[in-house]
Simulated scan of single mutants.
Amino acid sequence: MDFRTEIEPVSFPFEITQKDRFLSIGSCFSDKFGRYLQDNKLDCFSNPYGTIFNPISIFRLLNSSITEQPVMNRYLTENNGQWYHYDYHSKLSETSASSLSHHLEELHKKVRDYLRKTDYLVITLGTAFVYRLKNNQHVVANCHKKPADHFDKELLTQKEIGIRFRQFYEKLKLFNPKIKIIFTVSPVRHIKDTLQGNNLSKSLLRLATHYFCQDFKDVHYFPAYEILMDDLRDYRYYEEDMIHVNETGQKYVIENFKESAFSPDLKQFINQWQHLKNQLNHRPFQPESESHQKFLKNLLNRLEQIGNTVDVEKEKELVKAQLM
């Protein structure tokens, strides 16, 4: 008897290889995905603007990087001696407005240079609820703990999300014609919007991504949301706050993505690399023993072999430092 409804395997019209580059952006779930790629020696620029939840802010930031638009300094704001920008996450802050503006300009240049050679843009959408500044209705990415009466809360429409994406998509494809976009909807629940509101929000995001995939042949969807909601469907896969996905749930989702999208060679490499990482993390009782020294020499040889395809200089130095 089956006690689960497992999700159907996703079939992508491409295979991701070890040479491909990624830019991952969006909600905190995109951080986990980006870290997985980086930990397995893939080239990934993860959440350069910090955690961004709503699609309007995501598309606007990427568009600003592509088109070299200057940072909108009128949206800089100060709080307890630190300067923030309404379009970015609070981790991007400085002690002066000018230094923050300069920092953000440099960040956009870095993103633009990276995007020009990126193969896959992975966008994780978190919520369709947005906050607009009351004075001009500008959608903010982060309220930076400003008083609630500064903002109007609004639920985006599928039409507005679609218009904003099409505008961004057209500029992106002129900038980098080879790039593919993979959308996911974050399984992290925004209970501050109430559970009813969260479900309404996620349904709008899911509907939007469905039409993106229908309208553009190089836009794809990976069902991270459905895997948590309908496949795992259990609080065991969430943190104690019952909101964020725990490590076990994250691993299951990422393993599904790996099986769906990675080439056989890349899967083989990741398995090999994970084995080497476990050996690198080994802590012996007798570091000077002959057996452990032999183990280190063998490990160094394997790192040198794999070093023909990926950068393992840090790992090699770590092993060399332990050799007697």
Results as ranks from 00 to 15, higher is better:
L228T: 08
Y238H: 13
S65A: 15
S93M: 11
H102E: 13
P48I: 11
G34R: 07
L172F: 14
Y235Q: 02
L280T: 13
K180Y: 03
S186R: 10
E259W: 02
S93C: 11
I163W: 06
N142V: 12
S46Y: 04
N136M: 08
Y120R: 01
V122C: 10
W273P: 01
Y235L: 07
D20S: 08
K109S: 12
I58K: 05
D119W: 02
S11V: 13
F269S: 06
N79Y: 11
V139K: 02
V245K: 11
D87F: 13
L37A: 09
A128N: 04
Y84P: 09
D218T: 15
I179E: 00
K145H: 13
L23D: 05
I25M: 08
S24Y: 08
L104D: 06
I58Q: 04
I66L: 14
E8H: 07
L276K: 04
L104W: 07
S27T: 09
E288C: 06
D39W: 01
D43H: 09
L174P: 00
Y169R: 15
V319I: 09
C143P: 14
L200F: 04
V139W: 02
F45R: 10
R116G: 01
H138G: 01
I52P: 03
L115W: 09
G162A: 15
H108T: 08
F175A: 01
I191R: 07
T67M: 07
P48N: 02
K159A: 14
S201V: 11
R236H: 11
S201G: 10
P9S: 08
K145M: 07
F14A: 07
I191Q: 02
N308S: 00
E105N: 12
Y252R: 00
E154D: 10
Y120M: 03
P147I: 13
S46E: 12
E8W: 00
H244E: 03
E240S: 14
Q268P: 00
N278M: 11
R189L: 09
R74H: 14
Q214P: 00
S260Y: 00
R206F: 03
I191N: 00
S291N: 15
N278T: 12
A128I: 07
G307I: 07
E105D: 08
M324Y: 05
E94M: 08
E6Y: 11
L62E: 06
D241L: 04
D311V: 00
H220Q: 01
N40W: 05
E154T: 15
Y238F: 15
L42W: 00
Y238N: 02
F12P: 06
D234M: 01
E94Y: 02
R4M: 07
T95S: 08
E8T: 12
I191S: 08
L121F: 04
Q214M: 03
R236S: 08
A261N: 06
N142W: 02
K294I: 06
N256R: 12
N301D: 15
I227C: 04
L76A: 11
H89P: 04
P284N: 09
P284R: 10
F22W: 01
H150G: 03
T67V: 09
S98G: 04
L280F: 05
E247V: 05
Y131N: 11
Q38C: 06
Y86V: 13
H144C: 13
N298M: 03
K146R: 15
I270M: 03
R112Y: 05
R116K: 13
